[in-house]
Every structure is written in structure tokens, then in C-alpha cells.
Design a protein around this nucleic acid. Structure first.
Lengths: 184, 184
DNA sequence: CGAGCCGCTGCAACCGGTTGCATATCGGGG
DNA sequence: CCCCGATATGCAACCGGTTGCAGCGGCTCG
């Protein structure tokens, strides 16, 4: 129920085509709300019908035409109204948690490898976030009102990845107690 | 693709009816993998067809009959095989993150209230987890092999809730800088 | 005595999202 | 020369999950 609003936010920041949005979702907002390009096109269609956005067909030479979507007044109203509605806490879904409960019935070595892989993934993501933070918000205390949201979202990502790593470390300490940190 | 395995784990720990499973999901595993009773019944049907579980109809007096599902050998094989397959990292979905990006287009006061509500929810969940930890794992260093998974999952929950609270606090510090902690 | 909840199972409709495929043009590399 | 990748949009089938509803016996509370 919220992809509409994620797209609305993204378009409110800057008008874009479905293709642009898909790439933007790959790069920034998408870290906190994934969407495939098919889904984006589908939702854009619905949003156009609802009158939240209007397409602006732009001809390009050497490239296919594109439909640049612009947020309408009704779209901005909806966006503001949405921010005023309380959000529902999204249910956590951790396949790793289920796997941990499956320890007595499965392959401990394989699960350990899985935890290591997850730890690496968390570390990569954390590195990416930290780099983004350094690049876009070099002085966090001085962020403008417009930047504040992006900064806070990034902080959330950083905290979450750090926690993910910490959890993996706790798990690995129990599953391979003899290993030192370098081994993990 | 993993509710099957969550149910398999739960049934491997102890055979149960669909109704029992639904309540169990409300209480423990469900904190990390939600499922409604309708979904559970549907999946149990599929699992029975696949031969992973077999129903054992138990007549009860004063209550409707119940179908107690028991994991078959094939079910245990599948469970073990699943633990050996690498897990896919579930995409994060944070409506709050989207809302933070919507700050320039929305109602800051309403968003602030939302963050406060989330903080309370995280605190409640944390309190619940801490209580569970104290009750079921009073001596974490002495957990048995069978208990280890449950303990580690609980640790993950505790870490996640603490992080959620920390994030909310960072956000509130920026949104209501003049407020002290008691006010939040 | 009736209302309403608890235990217990299930169907049907819908809906958001994924997977796979189609199409068209342009430029670059094997 | 042909294939591939980038740009750009979109349909169709499927699938997991939610919402809403239904049935039925027994218990308790007013």
C-alpha cells in the first residue's frame, strides 16, 4: 500500500520517467522499499488514473520516447495526507531466524556458512551507506531541512546494518566458538 | 517460499494442529515470520500433498475434532535440505524511511507522532523479548544445543528492537531538538 | 435464555508483487 | 555481421498473502 507513496516522494523530489524511477529505486530509496520496473510501470498507471501524476511525453533522438511523470496538485495533497496517517509497523521476516530454530534438524556447517555470507552482505551494505554518508552529508549537523530526511534514512540503514553484523557475530561466536574474529 | 519451512520447524519441535500452529505463530516464531491461520491451513494442505506432513485426526469431547499434523521422514529430509540451501536476504521495507523522505512535503508534527508511536511499539516488543529471555534462558551461557537456536533468535529480536529505539531517538532529536528525553 | 466468545476448520475473492516475455532503436565489441 | 547491452515501455501468468465470511458445538456471563 505504500509503493505509490514512495514513488510520489521520489517524483515530488524530481519528475522522472518509469525507467528513471526504476534506476533511482535501485540506487537510493530502493534500499528501503524495493520495486521492479514492471511494478513501477503498473503503479504509475494506477496513479495516473487516480490523477496523482500526469505524463509528459518527451521525444528523444537516438533513443525511445519517454513519459516523464509530474506530480499533480492532487498528488501532493495525497502525499501530505499520507504523512498524516499513522504508519503500520511492517512485520519482520527473518529467514535466518527460522533457520536458527532449525539448527537441531539441519546442517550446522551449512547454516554457519549462511551466517558468514549474511555478515559479508551486511558489511558491504554498511560500507556503501558509510560512503554515501561521507559523500552526501559530510557535516551531518549542518544538513538543510530538505536533506534531513535523507540523512535520517541513511542513519537508519547504517544502524540496521551494524546490528545485522553484531547479530551474525553473536551467532558465529556460538556456532564456532574456537574461531577468532579473523576466521569469521 | 519459507512459511512451509517455518511450519516444518515448528512441527518438528512438536506436532500440532493448524489452530495450535496459528497460536504458536502468534506467540513465538511469529515474531520473525508472521502468518494468519488461513495461510497456515492453506500451506498445511500443500505440505500434506507434498508428503512432508501427515494429519492425525484426534476426536475430542466437548470440542471439534482436530487434525494433528506430524512431520514425515520426507518432511525432515526437506527441512535438512532447506537448511543447506543459502538463504536470500529479505528486502528491507521501511514505511518510516519513505515518510522521512516525505518530510518536506508533509506534516512534520504528524510524522513526529508517528515516530513516537513506533518508539513505544519497539519498547513494548523489547520488554516482551527481555522478559522471555529472563524466563526461558536465565543462564544464556548454559543453553543446551536444542535451546541455542531459540536463544539466538531472541537475541536478534532484542538487538533489532534496541536499534529501532535508537533510530527513533536520533530522529526525534532532529525533529524536536528542544525536547528532553522525558518529553519524547 | 440468549449473546457472544472459544476452539477448530476452511472457502472465495482480491491484491500486491514476481517472473518471463515482447518490442523497438542505437552503439560498440567480437 | 551478429550479438549484446543500454534505453524505454509494457503485457500475461502466476503466486504468496490478506480480507472477509462461513459453519458448528460448547462454555460462560448477564
Amino acid at each position: 500500500m505504500a509503493l505509490e507513496h514512495a514513488i510520489l516522494v521520489s517524483l515530488a523530489e524530481r519528475s522522472a520517467s518509469g525507467y528513471d524511477l526504476a534506476r533511482r529505486f535501485d540506487a537510493s530509496i530502493g534500499h528501503f522499499w524495493k520495486a521492479s520496473h514492471q511494478q513501477i510501470y503498473k503503479v504509475l498507471g494506477r496513479m495516473e488514473t487516480a490523477g496523482w501524476v500526469t505524463p509528459d511525453v518527451v521525444a528523444q533522438d537516438g533513443r525511445p520516447d519517454k513519459k516523464v511523470y509530474v506530480v499533480t496538485a492532487a498528488g501532493r495533497d495525497e502525499l501530505a495526507a499520507w504523512t498524516s496517517r499513522p504508519s503500520t509497523v511492517e512485520p519482520t521476516r527473518s529467514e535466518l531466524a527460522v533457520k536458527l530454530r532449525a539448527l537441531p534438524f539441519g546442517d550446522t556447517a551449512a547454516i554457519t556458512d549462511d551466517v558468514r555470507a549474511r555478515r559479508r552482505a551486511h558489511e558491504q551494505q554498511l560500507a556503501y551507506y558509510l560512503e554515501s554518508a561521507a559523500r552526501f552529508y559530510p557535516r551531518p549537523d549542518d544538513v538543510t531541512a530538505d536533506e534531513l530526511g535523507g540523512w535520517l534514512v541513511l542513519r537508519g540503514g547504517i544502524l540496521a546494518e551494524q546490528t545485522g553484523i553484531a547479530w551474525c557475530d553473536e551467532i558465529l561466536q556460538r556456532l564456532v566458538p574456537e574461531a577468532d574474529d579473523a576466521d569469521r
